[in-house]
Amino acid sequence: MDGRRLYLVMVGIGRACLLVAVLTAVSLSPARADVTIGIAGPMGGSFADVGRDIKAGVEIAVAAANARGGINGEKIRTVSVDDKCEAETGAAVANQLIGKGVKAVIGHACTAAALPAARVYAGGGVLFLSTAATNPRLTDEKVGAGVFRMAIRSDREARAIADYLGKRFKGKRVAFVHDGSVYGQGLAEQAAKLFADDGGAVAMTEAFTPGEKSQNNLIGKIQDAAVSAVVAGALQADAAVIAGEMRTRGLNAALIGNEALALAEFKALAGDAAEGTVFFLPFVDKTRPEAVNLILSLEERQLMPTDTVFTAHAATEAAIAALAKGGDLAGAAAFLRKSGAATVLGKVTFDGKGDWREASYAPQVWRGDAFAPLP
Rank of each mutant, 00 (worst) to 15 (best):
D355A: 02
G220P: 05
K325D: 05
L18W: 05
A330M: 10
A226F: 07
G41Q: 03
A330H: 07
L303V: 12
L303F: 07
T89M: 10
N293I: 09
V120T: 13
A192G: 10
F266A: 14
L115C: 04
R247K: 14
I37H: 08
F47H: 13
R288C: 09
R4F: 13
L261C: 09
L261F: 09
L138I: 15
R168K: 14
T209R: 11
A133C: 09
M43Q: 14
A207S: 13
A191D: 01
L294N: 03
A64F: 08
A158H: 02
S46R: 09
A370R: 15
R301Y: 00
A188D: 02
V20G: 12
G327Y: 02
G69D: 00
T316F: 07
A94G: 14
G220Y: 00
G70D: 01
N217G: 13
A145F: 00
Q236L: 08
E88W: 00
A232P: 04
V93P: 07
V120E: 00
L294R: 02
A65H: 02
L336R: 01
G186T: 10
G124V: 13
F350E: 06
V231S: 05
E59K: 05
E212Y: 07
V344Q: 05
V284I: 12
V230L: 05
V365C: 13
R15K: 10
G107C: 14
A240W: 04
N95S: 13
G352A: 04
Y361P: 00
A240V: 08
S339R: 11
A162S: 11
E189R: 08
L298I: 14
R156E: 00
R301M: 14
A322C: 03
G44Q: 12
F266D: 01
L8A: 15
K84M: 12
I295M: 10
A201L: 13
V93Y: 01
A314S: 11
T205P: 09
A315N: 04
S228V: 07
T36K: 10
D2A: 13
G244E: 03
F128D: 03
G73E: 00
D238S: 11
F280R: 02
L23T: 08
D307L: 05
G123I: 03
P136Q: 09
L251D: 00
A333P: 09
A330F: 04
M246A: 13
A234H: 08
A334I: 12
A48S: 15
I295R: 13
R68W: 01
A334S: 14
A315G: 06
G144Y: 00
K100P: 06
G244C: 12
I219S: 10
D328C: 11
R249Q: 12
N72Q: 12
A240I: 09
Y361Q: 02
G12H: 08
R149S: 04
V93I: 06
L296A: 15
F283N: 02
G90Y: 05
D83R: 03
L235N: 11
T131F: 03
V241N: 08
E275C: 03
A372N: 04
A67K: 09
G327F: 07
V241L: 05
A118Y: 00
A94N: 03
A158V: 03
A132Q: 01
P289N: 11
P210S: 11
V50A: 04
A65E: 01
A33H: 08
Q302M: 10
R156M: 10
N135T: 14
K103T: 14
A342H: 04
V344A: 07
F371G: 02
A117C: 10
L269A: 15
L329P: 07
S339C: 10
Q185G: 15
V62F: 05
